[in-house]
């Protein structure tokens, strides 16, 4: 379970505080895959970042006894001045691994970016970056209980996407997903449950189809 206790989050804007979430109280099950639904700017990425501990709520607390990954997405997680190898070493060390060699090799093998693995990350294309970030999460054998994914569709070319999806499906037994995507087919492929962001609140649905229905009903242009 992931518990939300009175969580509020706002961003300061020129017109005062813009609330994204207001007093969330919720327990999110972690025994199934959850799709997060909502249009742009409603706070999907903010939610994922807050669950991942990258961003903090302005009030309240999010906590969980489970092992939750960092948000796996396009931005962040890699330091531009360091090479991919150094980044991998760093992440391995902060997770308590003393011997980083096997993990380095696994990420290198998975990312398939050749000699660029030893070049500073800031010289990478965005596709190469996401190969490394994705490889990092997958190749680490952390056995996260929950994997946070922000837009898997943005990861790499068709070939790499196929490989990533296969790996995700193979980890199904031990690792559950909370994912954000604008592609409904891809959500349906991975997730059973849905989480709709509406009126600065979270609405959880056991059945993804119900969530999608309400999502389309609420936000569709009519």
């Amino acid at each position: 379970m992931i518990y939300f206790d009175n969580v509020s989050k706002y961003y300061p804007t020129k017109q005062g505080r813009h609330y994204v979430f207001r007093e969330l109280n919720l327990s999110l099950p972690t025994d199934r895959n959850i799709a997060v639904l909502g249009p742009n700017g409603v706070g999907k990425s903010t939610l994922i970042r807050m669950i991942g501990g990258t961003d903090l709520p302005n009030a309240g607390r999010i906590h969980s006894p489970q092992n939750i990954s960092w948000p796996l997405g396009l931005q962040g997680g890699l330091q531009g001045s360091m090479t991919a190898r150094e980044n991998v070493r760093f992440v391995a060390r902060i997770h308590g691994y003393k011997d980083t060699k096997p993990i380095e090799e696994r990420v290198q093998e998975f990312a398939e970016i050749g000699k660029y693995f030893d070049e500073p990350v800031k010289t990478y294309s965005s596709g190469m970056r996401s190969r490394v970030t994705f490889g990092l999460t997958m190749a680490f054998d952390f056995d996260f209980d929950v994997l946070l994914i922000d837009e898997l569709g943005a990861v790499g070319d068709a070939n790499f996407r196929k490989k990533s999806e296969d790996l995700l499906l193979s980890k199904y037994e031990t690792t559950k997903l909370i994912m954000v995507s604008h592609s409904v087919p891809s959500l349906k492929k991975f997730c059973q449950a849905g989480l709709l962001i509406k009126d600065k609140q979270l609405h959880f649905f056991d059945d993804l189809n119900e969530a999608i229905e309400l999502y389309e009903f609420t936000y569709a242009k009519r």
Partner: peptide, 29 residues
């Protein structure tokens, strides 16, 4: 038994690991 359980560390241990990793990263750059 997931390998994550093996790596349950105290807050203090986590902080030491992080600081060690950061020092190495700083020295390198």
């Amino acid at each position: 038994m997931s390998s994550a359980a093996k790596f349950r560390r105290s807050h203090w241990q986590i902080m030491c690991d992080v600081i060690f990793a950061l020092i190495i990263r700083e020295l390198k750059t």
